[in-house]
Each structure stands twice: as C-alpha cells, then as structure tokens.
Design a protein around this nucleic acid. Structure first.
Lengths: 241, 241
DNA sequence: AGATTGTAAATTGGATCCAATTTCATTGAC
DNA sequence: GTCAATGAAATTGGATCCAATTTACAATCT
C-alpha cells in the first residue's frame, strides 16, 4: 500500500483539487499512458513517417516483445490503426501496413481539398497574430531545411497551424486522418522537380491571404495548392497500385 | 482434427473453389464473424437506434455475459466504438454511451452539408435507373410510414441511395460516421411541426433534380435540406448540453 | 455535522494459457 | 515433375487469471 503522504499529491482528472500549499515538482502519475496507447503511438508514428514499408507484416508477438508487454495491448493498438486505415487486419492472418491505391490516394486528396479550403476560410477571421507568426516560422523552416524527411512534417505543421483557429474539432480530426494516410508519400514527391520551391511559393501566397484577412482567397489558393500536389503525386506514383 | 469430407465444403476467401456437385444449404463457416465484431455490431446498432441513452454505462462484464463470451472481444468492440465517437472510454472507469454537445452536433451537420452536396453532385452523372427507382421507393416509404422509429432509417436509406453511385468510398465512409453520430436525434425532430411532410417535399425536389441529371441543383437542394434539418434539430435540442 | 481516512467491493488493464486457423514444408500418387 | 493430401510449426482469437485503479462506504477525528 502507498504512503498516504504521497497519495495527497495525486491529481484526479476532472476534479481538480484545491491549490495545495505544497510546491513540488510532481509527475501526474494518474494520467500515465496505457500500454496499448504507447504501442499505438509508436506504430502510428512509424507508419506515417514511412519507416515501415507498405505491406510489412506486423506480428503481434514481435511487437509485444519489443515493448516488453503482452499481445493484448498490441491487438488493441492494431485494431485502432486498422480503423484509421493505416493497417489492414485479416482474421487469423495478421496485420500488415496498409498501402494506398492510386484511386484511394486521389479520393483522399479530393477530400482534403474540400475540407481544408472550408476550414481555412472559417479560420481566417479568427486567426491570432500568434498563429500567423507560428505559421510563418514553419513556412520559413520548410523553405530552409534540406532534410527531405522533414519536408512533409513541416508542410503539415504549416498548414495545420492555419486551420487550428477555426475551432472546428470534428473537421480537424477528419483532416488529421486524411493527412495520416498520405503524409509518407509526400516527401518523395516534394524532392523532385523543384517541388519544394513551388510549394513554398504557394505557401507564401496562402499565408499572405490569411494575413490580409482574405478568407475566400485563402480558400481558393488552398484548393489549388492541394490540387497541384495531388496531380504531381499521382503522376509520380504512376498508374499502378 | 476435422473430417476431410466436410473440409471440402469450406470456402476460403480469395480463392474460390470450383463448383461442387453437392447442392447443400451450407453456411460459410470460414467467414463467420468474430466475437468482437458481433458485439460491435450489436452495440453500434443499439446506440445508433437510440436504444441506449446517452451516458449509459457499458460494463464489460455485463456485456460479456449477455453475449456469452469473455471481456476480451467486448473491449475490442468498445475500443472501436470509441474511435467512432459513439462511446467514451475513461481508463479504469469504463465506457459510457457518448452524448453529443450542441456545438458538436452543429459541426457534424456542417460537415454533412459539405460532404453530401459534393457526393451527390458526383453521383448524379453516374446514377442508374435502378438506383433512382430504389431511391423513389425509400422516398415513398418514408412518406407513408407512421412509425416514428423508422423515419430516420428510411431518411438515411433514401439519401444514401443517391450517394452510392458516386463510387467515392472514402467520402461515403465519412458520411456514414457522421450519420451514425446524429441519426438517433433525428426521429424526435421529424415528429414535430410537420417535419416529415417538409422533409418529404425536399426529398422529392432532390430526387427530381437527380432524375433530370441536374447535379448542381441536386447539390444545392441537398445543402438546403440538411441545413434546415440542422436548424430545426438544434432548436429542438435547445442551447444546452 | 462535516471533513478525512481507511477498507472492501467493483471494475478495468494486462499476462498467461488454450483453441482455432493459417502457412509451409513434406509426402505420396499419378 | 506436378499436384493434391498431410501434418507440424507459426500465428491469431478468445478464456481465465492476477494486478492496478476507482468507487462506495464505514470509521475516525475535529
């Protein structure tokens, strides 16, 4: 049993206790992550970052050993990832990293065009100068970096920082999932034929429209930007898959 | 070990066996659902149909007993439902049927307006006469039925039958989830102030636009239709939640 | 009485075990 | 040699058990 003197430091989520006169550097023990969510986060990151190639089998036992846990939390994680379309699970046959077909990729980009133009238009009137300067910082960093692994991440951060002020949580979740499923294919696309310079020019135009409070223009530019990324990516992917 | 004579009746998915000369009413044992998916389907239906009130606790043991299974498949089902926003899971505290706030409901309807107008526009040029006659059948049935429990289901079937020909699977999945989360609130809204008659008139107009191949009109009418349903529902829900 | 503490019951998270199914190498027949 | 049948190994699905945590409630103190 725990010592009662330590227990009084616990913070139960939802019912914030009154300000304690004890000033200690305390870790929130009560909110530490479950095993399943840790496995989930790691696998999700590995898939999104492209560290696991499409079709890679994900054996429950292997993963469980790597995280020094049992297969139960692994199954939980794989189940969640399946629902997000990042892995495909076949009964008794195990999970593999889900690839994306040409058609699916195209449709997801169409979905993004619809979502992101709408959300940025809703966001513009609510944007704070803090958000705008953060967006500009990401924009600059995107231009400057040479690490091809970072482009898609910074690209995503730039765009997302322009959406957050909309406060449209449901829409933002949908955008997140769409980005999760396509992000790993963007790096190679950006690395060819001055993709970064072109994207950067379009980013600057979108940012300027936001700074000027021109929601309709920001929406149109976002549509065109994503549309052009889609076309280049699909051409690069080829007709296959 | 199984008898080989029975094994020959098994149909392994993906590799269809040659036509057997045995003509038996056989169940596809190989494709029978997992325990988790059965629990998931049942719970999902019960929540969507409004049989389980918002906030109802979902005890793993209770559910496991009802389905004569262990808690493992139940946990799997609850996890999936959580990702779809139909239940909320708090660690060590269990799952409850997820309600929906006024703000969330409003946002989901805005999302639907965006999605469904786009999808119906994409669907119109591809619609077959079979789809149109099926849609008309649902439309008529919606008008005729007096069972308030059936309205939202028929309403959903009508609309969805106009979307399917678009072939936009990703968009359709997103629409499905949005409908899952709002369907149970629609019945009460339709039952007040001639809601059914009004909805039926709007359905007829949408259907006519589809039959005439007028995609842009169908999209505009769909936007207006969902928008009016949203306004009436939100007014009925009140400012609370 | 009201707040606080300690304790037991209820509940969930995770580990381990067994069963069901697939996979793959091997065997045998033609 | 090719192809179906066979059986062991690998793998996943599900059941049961134990641990961690919350919750309800009685006991204690002020």
């Amino acid at each position: 049993m725990m010592d009662a003197g330590i227990c009084t430091l616990w913070i139960t989520p939802g019912t914030p206790q009154m300000a304690s006169n004890l000033k200690l550097k305390s870790i929130d023990i009560g909110n530490r992550a479950s095993a399943g969510s840790i496995v989930y986060d790691s696998l999700r990151k590995a898939i999104i970052d492209g560290e696991l190639e499409d079709g890679t089998p994900l054996r429950q036992d292997d993963i469980a050993c790597q995280f020094n846990t049992s297969r139960i939390p692994v199954r939980e994680a794989l189940s969640k990832l399946e629902q997000e379309g990042l892995v495909t699970n076949r009964r008794y046959r195990g999970a593999v990293v889900a690839g994306i077909s040409h058609r699916e990729a195209s449709e997801i980009f169409d979905f993004r065009i619809l979502m992101e133009s709408e959300v940025i238009a809703a966001s513009v009137p609510k944007m704070t100068s803090a958000s705008l300067s953060k967006a500009r910082a990401y924009c600059d960093e995107f231009r400057r970096t040479d690490d091809s692994k970072s482009w898609s991440k910074l690209n995503r951060k730039f765009h997302y920082s322009l959406y957050r002020d909309s406060g449209l949580k449901y829409h933002l979740d949908m955008i997140d999932n769409a980005l999760d499923r396509t992000e790993r294919y963007v790096d190679t696309q950006l690395s060819i034929s001055h993709g970064v310079e072109k994207a950067h020019r379009e980013h600057l135009a979108i940012l300027e429209a936001c700074e000027n409070g021109n929601a309709e223009l920001a929406a149109r530019l976002t549509r065109e930007h994503i549309s052009s990324v889609r076309d280049e990516l699909l051409e690069h992917l080829g007709g296959g898959r």
